[in-house]
Design a protein around this nucleic acid. Structure first.
Length: 726
DNA sequence: ACACTGTGAGTTTTT
DNA sequence: CTCACAGTGT
């Protein structure tokens, strides 16, 4: 291990082995390197066992990568390190000790959409309307409270007059507990509870962990802070790395005070700054520095680099999102022709929805690409359904999953039956699943519904009983078959059901892969690995293609060529931040993160018009473009008169100016069909070309159309996006 | 019980 | 535009 590969500050950080240390690491200053070397140093020079080191990273992928780098330095013993995200570390502890806090050890993890359905049910039970308490904002409020460790009991002291939310919150937590489930916030809170209430466990871990390291410290929240301090207090060998200019998760409860008050919180803390950037050209760095300088609430630091000046930042001012995409694609195309690999390129945007136009262009140009995130594979219905089966097998108390699948495929079990069952389950104080068992056995519910319940119950029970002895793939295969799900899709035999079956096949290969990679592959383990996987974790590094993702997802990554797109007021920065300095500064940090992802070249672009919610709207150039000094920018299609900053000062201003949807009516698609006749050739926006087979309905508006490769569809011509061909 | 259809509402960002 | 859902008809 050669510490001479480190600069002076990096080396100091590595060699500091006693007491708390905060490393303020600017973008691209080699913090991963420091972390890697530090852990290796602790093991090799300080003779610390790997199992005595806890390292918390922001994604599981980061943990995996770091582990493999450490392995290069110290060998296989790196595998015994405790390394992962807050959530995965917490779950690891909870799997062992869940019973100490009243949970069962096979608890399940609820994601955001599960959260939503639990909350909905709570509100229904409490007779609270969704109009007055929108699901999203209510979840937000509850989550916010949890991040700050404010439980239902303390809620009213912090949020006065929010007693309705308080009652929802309380009911939600009860339900969560009764379901033997935890949402993401609960995972952290429950570990805190575990450590607080059980001295033996706390002392065990505290004694065990000689060193605790936390990456991306600027994005930790209060609960996470509490978790760390419970594990380190007293000993204080805590080593955190972060950059306040890259704090972009304030909306998720990240508390900047964790980093700004580190020295006060941990006595005798030392601070080391890493200010030399090894990643980007000087032009890129200067641009980033200039932009972030506009934030008033920040500690100044001076990122510098000995790299060359490099190319100027190239700015393209597009007419609309399509011409923006065309610009990006033509650039990418010529870069490819110049010998660049698509793996070196990334397109970064503010919102996931922006990827669509680019995807379409990539397909048209036939250039490989990959999209990170955006409700992909695991959000699909068939995947969620089958995972719900698996989850219910893992934990029969899980009502969320049960309700999702009890009538999927159709078993003749409707709302009425479910309601009855829920009432009875409450009355007898048993789980819904158990109630289902009783209901048909004791003939409480007969007829079609009773048969359905019997089928459902008897399909699942054997799997529940032997889940620990069965292979995960066997459980999956079996349940797919026995539940009738496969048959349902086979009978349906449409293009859609085909693709669903393909997706299920893909899920099976994911399970198989998991099973082969784990020594002891258990159902819980697999379910956990997918629930705690972030979008970045799902990204396959070997896959070729241009990477597309949100700026948030891009944190921690780097690419030689970066396209930062959609730089418009209202989109980036988002309109919601206009009247809030703190939020606006967070947007600016996000911009800073974006700029500093680029190593060699940075392209930025904006569109004057963009389609949003089906209407075309006009946008002004983002203030962030104006914040980059002109001498660093090459204006690819001329420089428009500067109008971003002066014209926009407040939200109302923005809404008044140029945002009149009427003046930008959608372009006519041309010969949109008004009437059809059999034999007519038509083109559908999604299904492509087809021939009208027959016409039906009042006014002959229903057309049965046979599409090339896509099968026969019944469509109403007033609604279907159809145009005539020839 | 369930399929269909019209309606209303929504886009930040994610472990 | 696109999705989810409430309401209606079978």
């Amino acid at each position: 291990m050669d510490l001479n590969l480190l600069n002076q500050e990096q080396r100091q950080a590595v060699e500091h082995t006693s007491g708390p240390l905060l490393v303020l690491a600017g973008a691209g200053s080699g913090k991963t390197r420091v972390l890697t070397y530090k852990i290796a140093y602790l093991m090799k020079e300080m003779n610390i066992y790997p199992s005595q080191i806890l390292a918390i990273t922001f994604t599981n992928k980061a943990a995996k990568e770091m582990k493999s780098r450490i392995r290069e330095l110290v060998g296989e013993q790196a595998n015994s390190l405790w390394m992962g995200t807050f959530h995965s570390i917490a779950v690891r502890m909870l799997r062992i000790y869940a019973e100490r806090i009243g949970y069962k050890k096979d608890f399940v993890i609820y994601d955001t959409s599960d959260q939503k359905s639990i909350l909905k049910r709570c509100m229904k039970e409490l007779n609270i309307s969704e109009e007055s308490f929108p699901i999203k904002s209510t979840i937000g409020k509850i989550s916010q409270a949890k991040n700050k460790m404010i439980g239902p009991d303390q809620f009213k002291h912090v949020y006065a007059n929010e007693f309705t939310v308080e009652s929802i919150y309380r009911r939600y937590e009860e339900k969560m507990f009764r379901n033997n489930g935890m949402d993401f916030d609960n995972i952290i809170l429950n570990v805190i509870k575990l450590l607080k209430e059980n001295e033996d466990i706390r002392e065990f871990y505290k004694k065990n962990f000689q060193y605790v390291l936390v990456d991306e410290y600027q994005d930790t929240n209060k609960a996470q802070y509490e978790m760390i301090s419970l594990l380190t207090k007293g000993k204080g060998n805590l080593f955190v790395v972060g950059d306040n200019d890259q704090s972009i998760y304030g909306w998720r409860g990240a508390d900047i005070r964790n980093i700004s008050e580190f020295e006060a919180d941990f006595k005798g803390a030392r601070v080391i700054k890493l200010e030399q950037n090894y990643r980007s050209t000087n032009n890129i760095l200067d641009a980033a520095n200039a932009v972030i300088q506009n934030n008033l609430y920040r500690k100044d630091k001076n990122l510098w680099s000995s790299n060359e000046k490099g190319e100027k930042i190239k700015y393209y001012d597009a007419a609309d999102e399509y011409s923006e995409a065309d610009f990006v694609l033509s650039r990418i195309n010529s870069m490819i022709n110049n010998g660049c690999s698509t793996k070196e390129m990334a397109i970064l945007y503010r919102t996931n929805a922006q990827s669509r136009v680019f995807e379409e262009r990539f397909r048209r140009y036939d250039i490989p690409y990959r999209v990170v995130g955006s409700m992909g594979f695991y959000g699909r219905k068939e995947i969620k359904d089958l995972l719900s089966y698996m989850r219910l097998i893992q934990n029969p108390l899980d009502e969320v999953s049960l309700l999702r699948i009890v009538n999927e495929p159709k078993r003749g079990i409707g709302n009425k039956t479910i309601e009855k069952l829920q009432e009875m389950a409450n009355e007898f104080d048993v789980s819904l699943f158990e109630m289902i068992g009783r209901a048909y056995k004791e003939d409480i519910i007969g007829g079609k519904a009773g048969m359905g319940l019997k089928a459902f119950y008897e399909t699942l029970r054997p799997y529940i009983q032997s889940k620990d002895d069965l292979k995960v793939t066997d459980i999956f295969d079996g349940i797919y078959r026995d539940s009738g799900y496969r048959e349902m899709l086979e009978i349906e035999n449409t293009l859609e059901s085909q693709s669903r079956m393909d997706n299920i096949g893909e899920l099976l290969s994911a399970i198989t892969e998991y099973q082969m990679s784990e020594e002891e592959a258990k159902l819980e383990g697999f379910m956990e690995s997918i629930s705690l996987m972030s979008d970045i974790d799902r990204m396959d590094d070997d896959e070729i293609g241009v990477t597309m993702m949100t700026l948030h997802s891009a944190k921690g990554l780097e690419f030689p060529y970066v396209f930062m797109v959609g730089l418009e007021e209202g989109l980036f920065p988002t309109g919601r931040a206009f009247d809030n300095t703190l939020e606006l500064e967070e947007e600016r940090r996000l911009c800073y993160v974006g700029i500093t992802r680029a190593e060699k070249e940075l392209y930025i672009s904006s569109a004057s018009q963009r389609m949003i919610f089906g209407t075309r709207r006009e946008y002004l150039v983002s203030r962030f473009v104006g914040e980059i000094p002109e001498n660093l920018i090459e204006y690819l299609n001329g420089k428009k008169k500067k109008k971003s900053k002066d014209e926009l000062s407040s939200k109302t201003d923005y809404l008044d100016k140029g945002m009149n949807p009427k003046s930008f009516e959608k372009k006519s698609t041309g010969n949109r069909i008004k009437a059809v006749h059999a034999g007519m050739k038509v083109k559908h926006k999604i299904f492509g070309e087809g021939t009208v087979v027959s016409v039906s309905g009042t006014d002959n508006k229903m057309a049965m159309i046979a599409f090339v490769d896509k099968g026969v569809k019944n469509l109403h011509i007033d609604y279907a996006p159809l145009v005539e061909v020839e």
